[in-house]
Amino acid sequence: MKRKYLILLLAILGCATVVSAQNRKALRINEVMVDNESSIVDEYGNRSGWIELFNANYGPLEIASVFLTTDSLNPTMYPVPMGDELTKIGKRQHVLFHADGEPNKGTFHTNFVLVPGKDNWVGLYDADGRSLIDYVIVPASLLPDQSYARVDDGFGEWEVRNGSASKYITPSSANIIKDKNNKIELFARVDGHGFGMAAMAMCIVFSALLVLCLAFMLISKIGAAQTRKNKALAHGVETKAERREVEHDSGEEIAAICMALYEHLNAHDKEDTVLTINKVKRAYSPWSSKIYGLRQLPH
């Protein structure tokens, strides 16, 4: 019994670990600026390099106790402090860390700086200090006021952005400004008549139900064989050839057996539609009493 509980406990712990890991794994380094000469200023009016993280989850994510670092040999360089409600990032939202080497200025100021003119390895570790969630190597060739960003939020290739109209720099906001739903636009443009959608969707619906159908044809064959076997055993038949001879009971036979059982034993099988007629006792309540609803007491 104790062993059973132990296995259950381990399974629950395993699930909890997996769930936790899945959440944190969706945290992404999204954009980095090493040399900030004219970009965003912090709440003290100072400029420094910055690192933008993105929560790719479709739910909020608490990032307190994850680690930011620029040295893979020192993964716990900057722990994101606990106890600050701002470390809870909303779904598909961003958070910006100023790499100014002044952690006493607040939660979002790291204890390291990014160094211009050399490759900067930036890593993000989970709370255990060992599991690498994400990392990026920011190239040494990055010029002042250029950022190194993912093409799309949370995934995709990295590119250098120089602040031009097409390569805009977006601290604390989405790397691509979306003013329309690309999927809908694509369907409207390419499949204006809906034939493509109808064909694809019907194929998928048919496939899903066909797979289910085939699975249950197989299961019902196994089930029928098992029933035949059980029935044959009940009839005292043991060889395969004899088993085949034992036929299914017809619906009429089953109904007759059920009726006989009901007639003689008043016994039910597993049916849940048994009609019973019992007197229902209703408790008296003044709330439902008609006497209080009468305007005049009857004489």
């Binding site: 969707a201 619906v205 899903a208 159908c213």
Partner: peptide
């Protein structure tokens, strides 16, 4: 189980209306 395919076929109403 083959009756499942009828349930699939009837969904054509959805995609016909979509068009």
């Amino acid at each position: 189980p083959k009756l499942m395919l009828i349930g699939a076929a009837a969904q054509f109403g959805i995609f016909g209306a979509y068009m």
